[in-house]
Design a protein around this nucleic acid. Structure first.
Length: 426
DNA sequence: TCTGGGGTCCTAGGACCC
DNA sequence: TCTGGGGTCCTAGGACCC
């Protein structure tokens, strides 16, 4: 059996731990740039605010009542780590799946103890971290996801719901579950399934797996097995290094200026380089993309991307930057108001498994060693003295790409400075 | 004035090889 | 009238997740 443990309105719950005045109020947390609502307290949901709703399109009445906060990822990431630490007290097999949910494996535990154990787990997480969680217990991840939804939705479960593979109760639950409520089935697939008369999870479970595979894909076939209680989904190990890496931001305001796009690109490159070195990888190619604001229907639209291969796998920000500059030059056009720019590092390989070139000379080795020392020094300065202590190119005032985040709360658990400001009321 | 950011996996189809 | 058969590798794009 496997449990899915999921924080209720996770970002909102993190904020409430440190500001109890938010308790009982309609609270939302916004995406970067204060653009969309990405987390909602249940009071905010009750006001009819949808996930992903743009802030500026919310009805004025809602905006007056609700507390809207900028996102504070340093805080949420740290709280997430604490929750997982508690989960580790209950099973050696904890797989973080996202910032607010983890799978906890219970194979080998006596069947009868599982539900009480999950209740104790839930209580302990709540007591030790302040975060309320829901627990779904089932033989497969797909069923555990479903059980988790029930645990949160039906008060009678008191936050913990077990769903077995067989039995009348399971059948009733699956019949009441539209296919697009399943983990991994969204609008497109649901539409196609509906055309074939499959509208709820029970109908999908009863379909012939081979037929499903031939009409859809191996992904949908796995869904059938999972619904029948046979595990078919393996998660990739979150501790493995990423295979690609993206840094992108929307601009605080639109801009057509080439130098502003270049400044943003440099910033993203530097950040991407840091992430790359932190996970011990080298990139073999760099992609840059730009686009206008697709929501402005009346404006001329443009989006494009270019990839530039690096001469050799590298984690040197200067080399990433040189490649990214060429990519940007290849796609930049005058006459558009750009909304977003991003840098993606591709074909990442482990630094330890770097393939040496036949043409390498001792000078190449020496140059690589110097590059590594320089980047290590750069990362340390920026880590210890604060972001952007050392940077590429000159900063400008009033950057278009500067983020709006006007309502961020203090980083209570990771910044002494900000915590002290709370205490002294400054 | 104003609509996020960061990932993964799978498939189809083209290029290429013998 | 008529132009093989079987592979691999790569990429772009779709779909999905949180």
């Amino acid at each position: 059996m496997i449990a899915l443990v999921d924080g209720n309105s996770f970002y909102v719950s993190c904020e409430r731990v440190f500001d109890p005045r938010l308790e009982g109020r309609a609270v939302g947390v916004l995406s970067n740039n204060d653009g969309c609502v990405v987390a909602r307290s249940h009071e905010l949901k009750a006001l009819g605010v949808a996930m992903g709703a743009p802030l500026h399109l919310l009805p004025p009445a809602v905006r007056r009542q609700a507390v809207m906060l900028s996102s504070n990822y340093a805080l949420y990431g740290d709280m997430s780590r604490r929750v997982n630490q508690v989960l580790g007290e209950f099973s050696p097999d904890v797989e973080p799946y996202s910032i607010d949910e983890s799978f906890v494996g219970f194979s080998g535990f006596p069947e009868g103890e599982l539900e009480p154990r999950c209740r104790e787990l839930r209580d302990t997480v709540g007591r030790w971290t302040g975060i309320p969680v829901g627990v779904g217990l089932a033989p497969t991840r797909t069923l555990a996801k479903l059980a988790n939804r029930l645990a949160k939705r039906e008060p009678a479960f008191e936050g913990v719901c077990r769903l077995d593979a067989e039995g009348e109760a399971t059948r009733r639950v699956l019949e009441a579950c539209p296919v697009d409520d399943l983990w991994g089935v969204a609008r497109r697939s649901a539409e196609r399934l509906a055309l074939m008369g499959i509208e709820n999870a029970w109908q999908l479970r009863e379909a012939d797996p081979r037929w499903v595979r031939s009409r859809f894909s191996v992904v949908m076939e796995r869904m059938v097995w999972e619904l029948r209680g046979r595990p078919a989904i393996v998660l990739d190990d979150m501790s493995e290094p990423r295979r690609r890496l993206l840094v992108s931001r929307s601009f605080g305001r639109l801009t057509g200026e080439r130098h502003e796009l270049e400044a943003a690109m440099r910033q993203h490159c530097a950040r991407a380089g840091e992430k790359l070195r932190r996970q011990g990888s080298l990139a073999q190619a760099v992609q840059v993309f730009v686009r206008t604001n697709p929501f402005l229907a009346g404006e001329p639209q443009y989006r494009n991307a270019a990839v530039v291969a690096l001469p050799a796998p590298s984690a040197d920000s200067r080399e990433l930057l040189a490649a990214a500059s060429r990519a940007l030059a290849a796609i930049y056009l005058e006459g558009y108001r750009y909304q977003k720019c991003g840098v993606m590092l591709l074909d990442l390989v482990d630094v330890e498994r770097r393939q040496a070139s036949l043409l390498e000379t001792p000078e190449d080795d020496a140059r690589r060693a110097r590059s590594q020392r320089l980047m290590a020094a750069l990362d340390r300065l920026n880590r210890e003295m604060g972001r952007d202590t050392v940077r590429f190119g000159l900063p400008r005032r009033d950057n278009a790409w500067k983020l709006r985040c006007e309502r961020r709360t203090p980083r209570y658990t990771t910044s002494w400075d900000e915590l002290m400001r709370v205490k002294t009321g400054r």
